[in-house]
């Protein structure tokens, strides 16, 4: 029995040691190697590199806002930190870091029915986990009062193993191999191609906004006010939208609604996402609020 126990102890010790080493390597790579997602991209920026504006939001920011086109129209240099499936909690973390790093004084936030979410995002928040030990980020996770974030913070390598698809070995290797996030060259914009399928063209797509202030948006507003950062909200186009999205006017000081800007199906790839042509039309209109 003694031999068995000794071997089990050896395995547990080796495994724990490996977990600590891997944790250190993976976290180092997120800070110092080639950025692999919008979060590590932001974390790798320093305050020497500033922008006229930054745009935040979900895939409806990532695919809908082309900073290069806006720059041609307005001569303002911007950066798009659109993150797939991002929720107000993720956006708040972006705002905190943008302010901390003093990267811009103008923040644009795409908001729609993501307004209703007060929890962390499912996949999007994962990209913040490598930075969970930073005090100001951990303070926000603590507020969520979810035990799992304590485990992600304190158990070595747990977060990387649990989310191997998003922040695991594959991204680590790509970081070492210096394969950057494909959108960096386009300042964060990613183009979508295709058209809305014919069987989806006759349907209506509803947006239901909860008639209560989102706690994270409220904190963003307070934070920006305190740091003298201008914050502007907008909703990008949705095909055949119906709903109460104008309610956002009641809560947001600088809100611009573009939900119904484009009604032709050939400019969408699905009801919530524009293709390249649709983005051009949308950015033409949107650029006015950048002046």
């Amino acid at each position: 029995m003694k031999k068995l126990i000794l071997n089990i102890v050896l395995w547990i010790f080796s495994l724990s040691l490996l977990a600590i080493i891997f944790e250190a390597l993976f976290t180092y790579s997120n800070y110092n190697l080639t950025p692999r997602n919008p979060v590590s991209w932001l974390m790798s920026l320093d305050s020497k590199r500033t922008y006229d504006y930054a745009v935040l939001g979900s895939s409806r920011t990532l695919y809908h806002l082309n900073p290069n086109q806006i720059e041609k129209l307005t001569h303002k240099r911007g950066i798009n930190f659109g993150l797939q499936d991002a929720k107000p909690f993720d956006i708040k973390l972006f705002v905190i870091q943008l302010i901390k790093k003093n990267i811009t004084k103008n923040i644009y936030i795409q908001i729609d029915d993501s307004w209703n979410y007060t929890d962390a995002g499912e996949k999007s928040t994962v990209h913040w986990l490598p930075f969970i030990n930073e005090e100001n980020i951990w303070n926000e996770f603590k507020k969520l009062k979810d035990k799992k974030y304590y485990y992600y913070k304190n158990i070595p390598f747990y977060k990387y193993a649990n989310f191997d698809s998003e922040i695991g070995i594959r991204d680590y290797i790509k970081g070492i191999a210096k394969q950057p996030l494909s959108t960096i060259e386009a300042n964060g914009y990613l183009t979508l191609y295709g058209e809305l399928p014919k069987n989806k063209r006759n349907s209506k797509y509803s947006i239901k906004i909860k008639d209560t202030l989102n706690v994270h948006i409220s904190e963003i507003l307070a934070l920006c006010k305190k740091n003298d950062v201008k914050v502007i909200f907008f909703t990008s186009p949705i095909y055949n939208a119906i709903g109460n999205h104008l309610l956002l006017n009641n809560y947001l000081p600088n809100y611009y609604d573009y939900t119904d800007l484009i009604s032709e199906p050939q400019y969408f790839v699905d009801p919530r996402h524009l293709n390249a042509e649709g983005t051009k039309i949308f950015n033409d209109s949107l650029s006015k609020i950048f002046n």
Binding site: W11, S14, L15, L18, F22, F157, A161, D164, S165, I169
Partner: peptide, 20 residues
């Protein structure tokens, strides 16, 4: 020193599909 076993444990930790 159970080298092979430790290597396999490391591989599980590093390459295991825990999210799927």
């Amino acid at each position: 020193f159970q080298i092979k076993t430790v290597f396999i444990l490391a591989t599980i930790l590093l390459l295991g599909s825990f999210s799927n």
